[in-house]
Write a protein that binds this DNA or RNA. Structure first.
Lengths: 205, 205
DNA sequence: AGTTTGGGTGTACGTGTGTACACCCAAACT
DNA sequence: AGTTTGGGTGTACACACGTACACCCAAACT
């Protein structure tokens, strides 16, 4: 039971992050109080300040953490063979799987993206922009997009990300895991429609 | 200065609705307090109950009101000739115009759709579902979709609505009206891409 | 061994919150 | 003319909030 000081601090910090994520799950960060978090963690309110200077900075830490989960998902998706064959099915499956496993993180992103303190909102939008940009460079490697302008790639990427964010949000508010299938099925069809649109883009002059 | 009783009541009710909409603009309904609203309106807190039984029911009233604005937009969009020629440009223009004019209502929908009290969230999602359904029946009238299944129509409609909601949210968080052009331009391109996808859908067997 | 450091504690404050209760008074009914 | 109705008032309560301050004590340095 010898526990070094930094270990103990890290443990409490983790507890605060977890409590914050759990407590704002029904409502939002802006409705989350420092005292609620402290009570949940089992520390006195003022001890909170030893780890974060405000609820908002807790929120920013949660943004970082949530996007670690999201980027892990993107990595999984990316390491498939870049073929049109099963890319849609694979991607949607991986999305659904990650949303299931890290539900709280994805829910946090979806929720605080629209509501949430301005700083947190901005941080999330910035991260999503980065994801869009990454997707755009990936799309550029796919066969058939050689002649595309950078702008069109960005616009397509934005459309795909938007649709996938919406899919994630739908999956999160799915009451039971059983209700996931129609949602993923819709997402698959939509991705295919967009892909068909992309493949026929600019071929008409 | 003769004012009937129902007139006066209606006037206060309006003031409460307006104050509620304005106050939750930065934050969210869940962070809105009855006392804030009362102070803004200029009545004593308990007088609030003469009009709404809780903040949440105020929220439901605001949902109704906001969707009146949104449906007005849909009506405007619909009454264009159903041709592919300028349907995209027209629709996006009308969207941007209505978002500008009824910014608070559209912002409310976008915000409380994700955060916001569960009842309010559900009400908004239900209304959006209705819009999707309406759009699907409209799409069925367009030339080229005769052979489509009802399910595919619904899926396409969902994709379009999702993209337009995202566009509206981007327009709302645009700092200046001048920043609108790239956003609408993106929306236009995306709609065209989706349309190209739709037109080539199922023609491949 | 002696001192410093720092996470956690307990008390205390002013303020904001929802809501209960008794009350007022002019418009609206009889 | 007399009574009822109902929007608005004022006081009061128990609670939750953020935060300031003095304090504790074991791990970490010297």
């Amino acid at each position: 039971m010898t526990e070094t000081r930094v270990e103990r601090k890290e443990r409490t910090r983790r507890a605060i992050l977890d409590a914050g994520l759990a407590l704002c799950e029904d409502s939002s960060l802006i409705a989350l109080s420092l005292r609620q978090v402290a009570k949940e963690v089992g520390i006195v309110p003022t001890a909170f300040y030893r780890h974060f200077e405000s609820i908002e900075s807790l929120g920013l830490a949660l943004v970082d953490e949530s996007f670690v989960s999201l980027r892990a998902m993107l990595r999984d998706i990316r390491q498939g063979a870049p073929s049109y064959a099963d890319i849609v099915d694979r991607s949607v499956d991986i999305l659904a799987q990650h949303v299931r496993q890290e539900r709280a993180h994805f829910a946090f992103i979806g929720r605080e993206r629209g509501a949430g303190p301005p700083q947190v909102r901005d941080a999330i939008h910035h991260e999503i922009d980065l994801c869009e940009h990454e997707l755009a460079t990936d799309l550029a490697l796919l066969p058939g997009t050689e002649s595309w302008s950078a702008e069109d790639l960005r616009v397509l990427s934005n459309l795909i990300v938007t649709a996938m964010v919406a899919t994630a949000e739908r999956l999160i508010s799915a009451p039971q895991p059983a209700a996931e299938k129609p949602i993923t099925e819709t997402a698959r069809t939509q991705l295919r429609m967009v892909l068909v649109g992309a493949l026929n883009w600019r071929s008409r002059t």
